[in-house]
Every structure is written in structure tokens, then in C-alpha cells.
Design a protein around this nucleic acid. Structure first.
Lengths: 341, 341
DNA sequence: TTGAAAGCGCTAACAG
DNA sequence: CTGTTAGCGCTTTCAA
């Protein structure tokens, strides 16, 4: 079936293509009788203008590229949902680019998004969470950002200056640690993620700092590294429970890990929170859906995503925006932690 | 910064745009010396061709639209992941269209995807899961599908004939029910989803059929309706536990609901599986990450998504494909169910 | 092996 | 209020 174009409509209505375009876009007054005739024909053919042609001309596509490492990790759908909610009103649609944590795919997507002329890019995870990011990879992002408005969500590329929207993770980790200490815990373990990632490094530093500040010792083996997954939380918790000296509380780098830790505890017949307190990070929906409900630090993922879009939108409009927007975490106390006093 | 075009490259290389296009696409032999000169200039400007212009001409965008009701429900990211894995090798990228279960948004996205000239559409959830779908809504999909290859995943539009890839849900529900009965359960409740949706209706029918076949009674109140969420599973389970005559097993329409049910049981101090068995449906990652690990029916979501893409891809290539592809469910026995014999 | 020219479908001046 | 004209950036004959 041949695609019907604005010319076909114009011919049948005995007007010029320009006039059809005018009624399509309401971009200039058109006599009511012509308008309705045109409308009728448009309807008859179920005509829809070709967005490619329009975008080619207008140099805007109404499309945003979202790069993320793993849509299967509940954190990202939540952020995406916030992005979507904020941006669909503005008329944007999204290329969802799942990199599976593969740096090469990140590069590919960066290129692809440029070719497809997206209006903006939202970058989450991957290289922007590496403590030591290869300068070439960083340069790639900078290069892209110099042509397409780009905002990094919850990440950074040291040595560059890109627009960012981040959650104050250090603060969140401080809050969690202090909360545990205030509840009387003196021996606390931290189930972390990947050591090379800032999402872990920042929290570990904050954790150690707060412990020290409270005159507590964070033994070397108090921090266990993993990969942010439920499986990793489970195995780390097993190790912890196997020790002769168990901590009374465990702080997890994210909720997924915490859920895994909870499972390990239950499996071992160790009661949470009676025998060990567990606190997570993120506040994904799952956190409040399990038993015991998880005490956690909210990343306010929808706000994170929504704010990212707002910043990006302003950049697209060439309005002024702060380079850095930081969102404050919130402690959400539920039932997986116990007050020892 | 003005966008650099193929002409700028051509001019600087002192060749025609056609030649540049040839080296870009390897579409005709080019003298090695010219080729390398052009390449060098392309590199210098970090030139990337404008995909809009190319797509306008070639009438293909390498883009697939994926319409789904809720990216926040773990089922969908899993399917998407399967789609992505299968399709990114083929060079497709995705518009992710989250409808939030809003029929109007579905319509909007259908239109938008057409305007953006996607090569194909994958439709999940929403109107294609309604037992009684408004003919106009169905017609909209048919109309779209007549112009753009479209496949429905896990759904149907009665009275139309569209390409579909579905999981045999009735079979899955039969397997789950029979499994419970074989384990000696005689009183079984079913926590369902929305009564108007086929994902619920099919399972309810299968559940009743198998009960009857085994000479068991499925009392009217044995089926509780809800909305597929963890919260709905929790509240339904609370109702069930409040009865003087408790069933010994509960079959849940999906894993999310089952997780909610588990929570309610734990909260009430009712042991799963000792006092009540719980079986889910889907096998999302969460199912095996909680304690007790959930017995469930696998929807093989990655296969579902991957197969959907394969079918779609063939349609795009105008190859022959079966209208209907059905995937068989698998029972995954874990620890949330108990054998009574 | 290369260039000229036409055109994908649309919009934006500029006239009238 | 409406038509004409000229592209947007690219690919593809057709000739040379």
C-alpha cells in the first residue's frame, strides 16, 4: 500500500500542499470550508503526516534517548516511570537503550541516538558511576553532550562539567548509619556493591565516617562487596551469619541486596529484626511489599527521573539551568530494624 | 553549532556527496585513496549521517515501538529484556511506550508510532487483554496493523486476525491447579486479577475446570478478584485467612500477587508452606529471591519477548509467519507449596 | 570509479 | 486566505 502524502490530500482537495500543512499544524488561518473539506479527506484516508520529513526540516524530533544499564533492575523502571510521567506531557517519546552494563553498547547507543537526532539524552548508570572512568569513554560523552543536550542522572564524569541530577547518596548513607547507631547498634556490617562504582564507594566512605564519628570501629571485614543483586545480598548475608561474632545490624547498598539478605536470614532461622536489623537503600516498591517491611533510604526515583527531564527540557529550550541539581534522600523507617535501647 | 552534512564532507574532500554516501554505506566501490581521504575528514568532524534523511528516503527506520501498560511491573521489563536481546542484534532500537493502563494513551501511542514511521509494533497488555474490547479500539489496532507490521504479545482481539505470540495461560493454570490437587489439597482459593481481563478469566476458567474434573468443589468465594499488585495479593490473603474455613492452598494469578499473599501470611503468623501453600504465576526474578522461594508457573518472559521480535522481524521482511505462536508454560516447583500426602 | 540530478514528505518564507 | 518555491540531508539512478 502506497503511503498517502500531503500531496495526495492536496490534490484531492484541489488545494496546495501548503494549505494542507496549514490545517494540519494550525499554523495560519484557513477558510472554514477548505479546512473542513481537507479534514474530511484526511479522515477518509486516515492520513497521518510523516514525522521524519517534518523533523528533518524542523530539526527537532520530540524524542529523548534514555540510556540505562538494566531495565530488569526495579530501580530503573521506577526512574523511567518518573521520566515518562514528566515528559509525556511535554510530548516527548523515548528511545530506551538498555546497555546490560556493557560499555561498548553505551558507545553504540550514544552514536545511534545522535544519528537519530534525539532532542536530548538522559544517561544513567554504567560509565558515569565508575570511580575511575577511562578518559576516552568520558570524552565520548562530553563530545555527544556538546552537540545534544545531555544530563547525567545519579552519576558523574570527573574532570568534565556536564549537567547532572543526583541524589545525595553520601547523605543517605550517613542517615542510615546514624539511624542504626542511634538505635543502639554498635556492630554494623555493610553489604556493598561493586567496589569500583561510586554508588558503592560513596556509601562506604560515609558509612566509615559516621562509624568513626560515633567512636565505633568499622572493622575491615565489616564491608562486603557484591553486585547489587538479590543473589549477592543473600550470599553476603550467609557469610555474615556464619561468623562467630555477628553484627546486630546490616546496612545494604540497595533494596535488592537487602531483600536477598532478608532471605538468607530467614532461611537460617535468624529473625529480622529481632536478632539482626536490616536496612536498605532506594525504596523500590518491593521494599514495602515483603515481610518484614524494609526500613530503607528513599532515592525518590520518580523525582530523580522527573527532575532529570525538567533539566533536560530547559536545556533543549536553551533556557538557563543549574549544572547540578541535588535531591535529598529520605529515611523510611519500617519493620526490618529494631531499637536496641 | 551548525550540523555538518555529507556535503560539507564532500566539499572538503573535493568529491561529490554521492561518493561520500558510497563510502559511508559501502554501497559501491570507491578508489582507496579517495575513500581514505573521506574517512579522514569524517573522523575530523566526527561526522555522523542524519538518520532521518536516510529513513525518509529508504522508508525504514530500524525502530520498533513497544506498547505496554506498566514498566513498573517486573513482568514487563523481563519481556522487554527478551525483546531487546533478540532485536538489538538485528539492529533495531525501541520506542518504549508506557500507557499506564490508559486506553487513550494506547491510541495516542499507536498514532505517534505511525507518524514516526516505526518498522513494527509490539503490543502488550491493555485492550488486547480485555474480555470485551470496544470494537472501535480493536479497529484502531487492526487499522494500524494493516499499515505497520504488528504483533500482539500475550493478548488477542476477538473478531480480528492479527499476528500473535502467546503463552498458553489456560494450560499453565491447569498445571498449577492439578499440581496442588496432586499434592493432596482439596480446598484451594484463587487470588485473581481484574475480572474483565483475559489473563484472569482464562485462568479462572481453567482453575474451575480442573477442580471439577477432580471432583472438587470450587465454591463461589474461592475466587477473589484484585488488580495484580502486591497490595491486592496482601489484602486478598488477609480476607482468606480471616475465614473460619481456610483453604490449604492459594493459587495466585501472578507472582506479584503471590508475594503480597506471602506477606499477609507471615504477618498473620501463618506459616507458608506448612499451614498454607502458595503458588504463583510468571516466574519473575523476585519469585526465587524471597523466602520461602515461590513455586510458580513460568511464563518464560524472555522467550515470549524474543519470539515476538522474531515474528515481527519476519513480517517486516515480508516473509511468511504463522499467525499464532504459542509458548508452553513450565511448572517451577520451589518451597512455597507443601505435599499433604 | 565518480558526478549530476532527482526526489523522499514536509514546512516556511514570500508573494499575491 | 492560498499558491509557489525552495530546501531539510541523504541515496539512487543514469551517464560519463
Amino acid at each position: 500500500m502506497k503511503q498517502v502524502t500531503i500531496y495526495d490530500i492536496a490534490k484531492e482537495a484541489k488545494v496546495s500542499a501548503a494549505t494542507v500543512s496549514r490545517v494540519l499544524n494550525n499554523t495560519a488561518p484557513v477558510k472554514e470550508s477548505t479546512r473542513s473539506k481537507i479534514m474530511q479527506i484526511i479522515h477518509k484516508y486516515q492520513f497521518q503526516p510523516n514525522a521524519l520529513a517534518r523533523s528533518l526540516l524542523k530539526k527537532e524530533t520530540g524524542t529523548i534517548g534514555v540510556i540505562m544499564p538494566d531495565i530488569t533492575n526495579p530501580f530503573f523502571p521506577e526512574v523511567f516511570s518518573g521520566i515518562d510521567r514528566a515528559a509525556s506531557e511535554m510530548g516527548y517519546t523515548f528511545f530506551l537503550c538498555d546497555t546490560l552494563g556493557d560499555t561498548r553498547k553505551e558507545s553504540q547507543y550514544l552514536h545511534m541516538l545522535r544519528e537519530k537526532q534525539v532532542d536530548g539524552i538522559l544517561f544513567l548508570g554504567g560509565r558515569i558511576n565508575l570511580s575511575k572512568c577511562d578518559p576516552e569513554l568520558a570524552e565520548e560523552v562530553v563530545e555527544t553532550a556538546s552537540r545534544i543536550p545531555t544530563v547525567l542522572i545519579n552519576g558523574n564524569l570527573p574532570g568534565t562539567s556536564l549537567h547532572r541530577v543526583i541524589l545525595n547518596e553520601a547523605k543517605g548513607a550517613e542517615m542510615a548509619t546514624q539511624f542504626l547507631i542511634d538505635a543502639g547498634h554498635r556492630s554494623i556490617a555493610f553489604i556493598a556493591g561493586n567496589e569500583e562504582m561510586t554508588t558503592t564507594a560513596q556509601k562506604v566512605r560515609a558509612f566509615r565516617r559516621v562509624m568513626k564519628k560515633n567512636g565505633l570501629e568499622a572493622a575491615k571485614d565489616s564491608v562486603l562487596y557484591g553486585d547489587y543483586s538479590m543473589a549477592s545480598g543473600e550470599s553476603s548475608m550467609e557469610k555474615i551469619l556464619a561468623r562467630r561474632e555477628r553484627p546486630t545490624a546490616v546496612f545494604c547498598v540497595n533494596d535488592l541486596t537487602a531483600v536477598g539478605a532478608l532471605k538468607a536470614a530467614m532461611k537460617a532461622g535468624v529473625s529480622v529484626p529481632d536478632e539482626v536489623s536490616v536496612i536498605g537503600f532506594d525504596d523500590i516498591p518491593l521494599a514495602s511489599a515483603i515481610y518484614p517491611e524494609l526500613t530503607t533510604v528513599s532515592q525518590r526515583m520518580d523525582l530523580l527521573g522527573g527532575t532529570g527531564v525538567q533539566v533536560l527540557h530547559k536545556m533543549i529550550l536553551k533556557e538557563k539551568v543549574k549544572m547540578l541539581t541535588v535531591i535529598e534522600p529520605e529515611l523510611v523507617v519500617r519493620n526490618s530494624t529494631r531499637n536496641l535501647r
